[in-house]
Design a protein around this nucleic acid. Structure first.
Length: 615
DNA sequence: ATTAGGG
DNA sequence: CCCTAAT
């Protein structure tokens, strides 16, 4: 699959080895966007410059500057413009000790990826599909993907540009993670941060890698889940839950990350942190109760919301004439990235890569705008849509949009209460943060749907609806039901169109459970039970020793035993978390030996019995 | 619904 | 802790 291949290519530290940089003109173009208003001291520039300087210091031999690395222009934004930006938390206003050099972070806003890609297609839907992911992920394979579409000589140079905007910096105390309780920031040094937000800004998702896992969900959901647990069982099977592409995407990104080698039980390092926007003022409540301020204001972006610089060559009048598109740039949903000053170039690369990957995994789709209106019917041909002559093509635009979430907004938009820890363990989990990992990522989607291409308003009889930045119920319905159209109704041509949302992904409601480490007491009980019952009767173990512990399923117990056995067999130095008394571990090993021996004998017995039967 | 094992 | 396959 295309995406996979790309990710693989890029997995080595976001290397785009063969990507020619964009021509200066191209880079500058974006940088000039609104840049003229800011003519004072460019603190943001300075910040980034210092970052670049440090980065270069770290790798003197490298001839690559961060500038080249990002292939983009640094856009200075006056401080007040982003005074309300989500990158900055309230903590910085509260005079928290965030001014330490170590905690200063650079927040980069990546607002667009540029590329040149010529498409030559006919049906609107095909066009969408081809554009799909290519502009997002590097360009080393873009040519391959577009080759069949590229007009000979149509493109002289391949480009891939990240336009980077320096948003905020040290000057006011650095940027703090939103979720740091008590203003403590020590554990967050040298971390990258990435926040992702839905286009409707209802949610912020905040992904970190640490030893904690928190997911915020309305209590009603928790209740539901609980009530659906059977006496010994686990929750509702995932497959029965609502699906959330975005979450899944982010999780996937982490799976990749984890595979880089965090060792045994690496899931322990995963944290998924979800924040809920509380008001239009941008208050965000973290699951630990912390507040941070975010802004909903996107005024700066609104003005320059042109999606795709777009040029089109005509097709003609005959039936099979081709329509050629050259997409100069596709604006991606904003990416906000924070990295510490001391970040290496490599980590910066990886951070951006993670952001882009997460963006893709979340499910991105392409929207087509024609004369400022969203073209909703994917099955119409271009000519049917009125896109067959030069003038009209000039009014065509593409948008990158987050994949629509299904059915979960109503579930979570009610009950804007401040989440309370479900038990005391949560706090201790949090405070026991292990800063083991050096990279925290998240990204935010913002206003992905607000991009409109300009054009004169020509009336069109085709199925165009006013373009709104909301994902209406109608659209959801239509897109969902479209997936249900019987094959026979689609026709052979349509069959070639791969639905973008073919594989349903994980949902909001099916968030990973919060981690609840076993106490020594619990371990004791578990060991005792296993000693008596053996390792193959987890239901009985649950019944015997964890009857009232509703949050411990027999699977949990089995898993815990697994880790106990592992823990017992490694050196004490390698153990983590609350230490388990050696005495218990010894019993674990003993019981493990005993019961596995037992199992062997059983099997042997069976085999022997079978053998004798045969004989 | 449980169990077993990989991720 | 999650996911799945196999009972």
């Amino acid at each position: 699959m295309v995406v996979k291949r790309r990710l693989k290519c890029c997995s080595n530290g976001f290397d785009f080895p063969n990507i020619p940089k964009a021509p200066r003109s191209s880079r500058r173009k974006v940088s000039n966007m609104g840049g003229g208003e800011f003519d004072s001291e460019f603190s943001g520039i300075n910040l980034l410059a210092s970052l670049v300087g440090k980065l270069l210091d770290e790798s003197e031999s490298s001839s690559t500057s961060a500038y080249d690395l990002l292939g983009g222009e640094i856009k200075q934004e006056h401080e007040h413009v982003y005074d309300h930006k989500p990158c900055k938390s309230d903590f910085s206003h509260q005079g928290s000790p965030a001014t330490s050099e170590n905690t200063s972070e650079t927040c980069l806003q990546i607002s667009s990826l540029e590329n040149d890609c010529i498409l030559e297609q006919t049906p609107v839907s095909d066009c969408k599909r081809v554009c799909g992911l290519n502009p997002l992920v590097g360009c080393e394979n873009k040519k391959r993907d577009c080759d069949s579409l590229v007009e000979s000589g149509g493109i002289s140079e391949e480009t891939c540009v990240l336009n980077v905007e320096a948003i905020n910096g040290l000057e006011d105390g650095g940027l703090l993670p939103e979720s740091v309780p008590n203003g403590s920031v020590k554990g967050y040094e040298n971390h990258s941060k990435l926040v992702c937000r839905d286009d409707d800004e209802n949610f912020c998702k905040y992904y970190t890698l640490s030893d904690k896992c928190k997911s915020y969900r309305p209590l009603t959901r928790v209740g539901n889940r609980r009530t659906k647990m059977t006496k010994y069982g686990r929750g509702v099977p995932r497959s029965k839950c609502f699906e959330d592409t975005r979450t899944d995407g982010c999780l996937k990104a982490y799976h990749r990350k984890r595979k880089l080698g965090y060792g045994y039980n690496s899931w322990k390092h995963e944290t998924l942190h979800r924040k809920r926007r509380l008001s239009d003022k941008g208050l965000v409540v973290n699951s630990d109760g912390g507040l941070s301020s975010e802004s909903v204001s996107n005024s700066p972006e609104k003005g320059e919301s042109e999606v795709g610089v777009f040029s089109a060559a005509i097709g003609l009048h005959s039936k099979d004439s081709r329509v050629k598109f050259s997409i100069k740039s596709l604006r991606i949903p904003e990416l906000f990235i924070e990295v510490p000053e001391t970040a290496t170039v490599g980590s910066l690369k990886r951070t951006v890569m993670e952001a882009v990957n997460a963006l893709i995994d979340d499910g991105i789709r392409i929207g087509v705008l024609f004369q400022g209106k969203k073209v909703r019917d994917d099955n119409n041909t271009l000519s049917q849509t009125g896109l067959s002559c030069r003038e009209n093509l000039g009014n065509l635009g593409f948008t990158l949009e987050p994949a629509p979430e299904k059915l979960l907004v109503p579930l979570c938009s009610e009950s804007p209460m401040i989440p309370m820890p479900t038990d005391s363990t949560n706090f201790s989990e949090r405070s026991a943060a292990s800063p083991a990992l050096d990279s925290r990522l998240s990204f935010r989607l913002q206003d992905a749907d607000h991009l409109i291409s300009s054009g004169n308003s020509v009336e069109n009889k085709q199925e165009l609806v006013p373009y709104q930045s909301d994902i209406s119920a109608e659209e959801q319905h239509s897109s969902d039901s479209r997936a249900l159209v019987p094959v026979s109704a689609l026709g052979s041509e349509a069959l070639a169109i791969v639905p973008l949302n073919e594989k349903p992904k994980r949902t909001e409601a099916s968030q990973r459970r919060t981690r609840r480490p076993f106490s020594v007491t619990e371990v004791e009980a578990l060991v005792h039970a296993v000693e008596e019952l053996g390792t193959g009767r987890w239901r009985d173990v649950k019944l015997r020793s964890f009857e009232k512990a509703n949050h411990r399923t027999y699977v949990d117990l089995k898993d815990k035993w697994k880790t106990l056995v592992h823990t017992a067999s490694i050196s004490p130095q390698q153990r983590r978390g609350e230490p388990v008394p050696q005495e218990l571990l010894d019993r674990v090993l003993a019981a493990h030996r005993h019961w596995s021996q037992n199992q062997l004998e059983k099997q042997n017995g069976k085999h022997q019995a079978a053998a004798t039967m045969v004989v």
